[in-house]
Simulated assay, not measured.
Amino acid sequence: MKVLVTGTAGFIGSHLAHRLLDRGDEVVGFDNLNDYYDVTLKQARLARLQARAGYTHVAGDLADRAAVEAAFAAYKPQRVVNLAAQAGVRYAAENPHVYVQSNVVGFLHVLEGCRHHGVEHLVYASTSSVYGANTAMPFSEHASAEHPLTLYAASKKGNEQMAHSYSHLYGIPTTGLRFFTVYGPWGRPDMALFLFTRAILDGKPIRVFNHGRHKRSFTYVDDIVEGVVRTLDQAPGKNPAWDSARPDPASSGVAPYRLYNIGNEQPVELLRYIEVLEDCLGRKAQMELLPLQAGDVPDTEADVSDLIADVGYRPVVPVETGVARFVEWYRGYYGA
């Protein structure tokens, strides 16, 4: 089928596009290659895609309504995966407006494109950050997520609510995917694994918040992509068991709408994550131990029982394997 994927010069988007092409789908990529981080890395990801048959690239910004409308009209995708967004939980302190433009206004333009062009299914990236102040572990899609702690998380929670309204009003099947701490080859330079690797190889100290004692459901990028593909192939319907008196946040009785966690079920302490990286690099890290940062949650743990029940999949790659693959890529790409 023909799939429009936004953010194909990005980390997860580029991996997803390759996966769809591998199975014979036609992919229309949409990305503005902004300078939030190293543009040459984005260009390198994109160059690999543009060398493949079946890939078409559209240069554009989701906040540009005309550009998004033109892409939908010209390519008429059957399904859409929206991964383009302003990422990062801390950048909002410097530039809050870009989160609203990219993640809220841009998402509205995607929803409108789906509405007016008969898209069969919209899958979009949300985040485990929406759980915010919720401390009940593991995080479940059926629990409340009404208190995000960052503007990034708030913008993604807004996406979930916007999607539900469009699913209800226009019958567009939508699936939101809450990703948990994604890592792997071709990753983002602002993420911990990238920052730690660069610093350790350069002989510089790494900043370790919460003294490294918090846990995360670190999830390898191929596991994320497999979850995206499986949910993309299965458009949701209305939930007949939905109770209007006690509505379920993960589904709906009035709309073809669904939310899923995609994360590793085995959270790993940050200090163990660093230890695995040290083993892969053959070097010890110099650690600057610091308190928990504002907006960070102490721990994350993914409940993926719904993902298993509905699409028969759970993330499986352990950090020992995933970090080794990242280090192999990093050394090859940077000649380190």
Rank of each mutant, 00 (worst) to 15 (best):
H57A: 05
G7C: 09
V304D: 01
R207L: 09
Y152L: 09
L290H: 12
V39G: 10
E265D: 10
G13C: 02
T300P: 01
G322F: 15
P185R: 00
N32C: 11
Q43A: 13
N82I: 10
T181Q: 14
P173C: 09
T174P: 10
W186P: 07
A255G: 11
F139W: 02
A199P: 03
Y257R: 01
F30K: 11
V3M: 13
V58T: 13
Q43Y: 07
L4H: 15
T174Q: 00
G184Q: 12
Y330H: 12
L21P: 04
E288R: 06
A17L: 15
A309Q: 06
A51C: 08
V327Y: 09
V5M: 14
D38N: 14
A163L: 01
E275P: 05
L177Y: 02
V268H: 13
G203S: 10
P256K: 05
R188T: 07
L62P: 07
V208Q: 05
G106Q: 08
D31F: 02
R178C: 01
E112V: 12
P298W: 12
D61V: 09
A241S: 05
A93W: 15
Y170N: 06
G158D: 02
V89W: 14
V68L: 13
Q86T: 07
E160W: 00
R325V: 05
K215R: 15
V276E: 08
F180T: 02
V39S: 08
D310F: 11
L20R: 07
G171V: 04
A154Y: 00
V276W: 04
A59T: 08
Y260G: 00
Q286N: 10
E146I: 06
L289P: 09
M191A: 12
W329H: 11
S251D: 00
G332A: 14
F196Y: 10
V225K: 12
D310P: 04
E275H: 10
R178P: 02
E265K: 13
V254M: 15
Q266K: 14
E26N: 03
G158E: 00
R325F: 07
D299R: 05
W186K: 14
V317N: 08
S244L: 11
A63W: 10
G227R: 04
V130N: 02
D243Q: 06
L49S: 02
A125G: 00
A133E: 05
G113K: 07
A302D: 02
L41E: 13
R314I: 10
E26L: 06
A294L: 15
V323I: 14
G295W: 04
S251T: 05
A125T: 01
K157D: 00
D243S: 06
L277Q: 07
P247Y: 03
R65T: 14
Y333W: 07
S167D: 11
S14R: 05
P247V: 08
T135C: 08
V225E: 13
E226I: 06
D22C: 11
R331H: 01
L20H: 07
K156T: 01
D223Y: 15
D296A: 15
Q293T: 04
R45Q: 13
G132F: 03
G322L: 15
A145N: 03
H18T: 04
N32W: 14
L151R: 08
Q78E: 15
S251V: 02
A70T: 12
P247D: 05
T175L: 07
G24Q: 00
V276L: 12
F30V: 06
G332R: 12
D22F: 11
E94D: 13
P249W: 01
H117I: 13
L259H: 05
R178K: 01
K156Y: 00
P96I: 09
Y313R: 07
G184W: 12
